[in-house]
Design a binder for these strands. Structure first.
Length: 124
DNA sequence: TGCGTGACTGCCT
DNA sequence: CAGGCAGCCACGC
């Protein structure tokens, strides 16, 4: 696996790359999958370049809103990119996570890539 | 070589 | 019900 990197960032990127078109994931969701704090997810994505293959624009905060950068305002381009994928924003500039939230990778994928399935909420 | 920065979330008071 | 605090990886200068 190319994910043998000890850094959680590589994991975060790998998971982020799985987010399908028209779907969004939260920092906490990615964090739990990667086995690290949500804070690191933000840190990791902040280091991504605009030309990165990682669909970082599909990752929003737990309020369903576009993340706010150190500029003091959300990246309008992120919202536009999401809207182009069919993601709708509410009156409060929020995404309906109950409709657009990514269900997450399959258990097979987790095992295939050496992730810890036990860490996931496999409750019934 | 060491320190500060950097896109968040959940629990406690 | 709302606000504040703690968590701890990787990169640049």
């Amino acid at each position: 696996m190319s994910m043998r990197q000890k850094g959680n960032r590589q994991r975060i990127y790998c998971i982020a790359n799985l987010i399908p078109y028209g779907k969004v994931a939260t920092y906490g969701q990615i964090a739990k999958l990667a086995g690290c704090n949500p804070l690191f997810v933000g840190y990791a994505l902040a280091a991504l370049l605009d030309d990165s293959d990682t669909p970082w624009h599909r990752i929003v905060n737990r309020h369903g809103q576009v993340s706010i950068r150190n500029d003091g305002k959300p990246d309008a381009n992120q919202r536009i990119a999401l809207q182009q994928e069919g993601v709708c924003f509410n009156v409060h500039d929020r995404i309906d996570l109950t409709k657009h939230r990514w269900a997450g990778p399959t258990l097979d994928w987790l095992v295939e890539h050496g992730f810890d399935p036990i860490n996931q909420e496999g409750d019934t």
